[in-house]
Computed example of a mutant assay.
Amino acid sequence: MTRYSEELYNFEHKLKNTFDDFLKRIGLYGDENKEESYYKDRKITCFNPKLDFHENDKEYLVYVELPGVKKEEICLDLRDGDRVLNISGEIKQDEKLEKGRAHIEERRFGYFRRSVVLSENVNLDNITAKFHDGVLKITIPKQELTKSKKVSIH
Rank of each mutant, 00 (worst) to 15 (best):
K150V: 13
T146E: 15
I140C: 09
R113N: 12
E73Q: 08
R107M: 06
K96Y: 05
R42A: 02
E12Q: 14
V151S: 07
S152T: 14
K137Q: 11
L28M: 14
R83H: 09
S115K: 12
F53I: 07
R83C: 02
F47W: 12
R113S: 14
N123L: 07
Q143D: 02
L85P: 10
K147G: 10
R42G: 00
S148C: 05
E6Q: 11
A129P: 05
H103G: 09
D31E: 12
V84E: 08
V116G: 05
V84S: 04
E35A: 13
L118I: 04
L124Y: 02
Y60W: 08
K142P: 11
A129E: 06
R113E: 09
F19P: 01
H154G: 12
I26M: 11
N123I: 01
L145D: 09
K130C: 02
D77M: 02
K16F: 06
H154A: 12
N121A: 02
D125S: 15
Y63N: 12
E36F: 05
E95H: 05
V117A: 15
R101A: 10
V62A: 02
E65H: 04
L28Y: 09
R108P: 00
E73L: 01
Y38H: 09
K14P: 00
K40C: 01
E59I: 03
K16L: 10
E35D: 08
I138T: 03
F19E: 06
H13P: 00
N10L: 14
L66N: 03
V64L: 10
F109L: 02
D82P: 10
G30Y: 01
L66Q: 07
V84M: 11
K16V: 05
E144T: 06
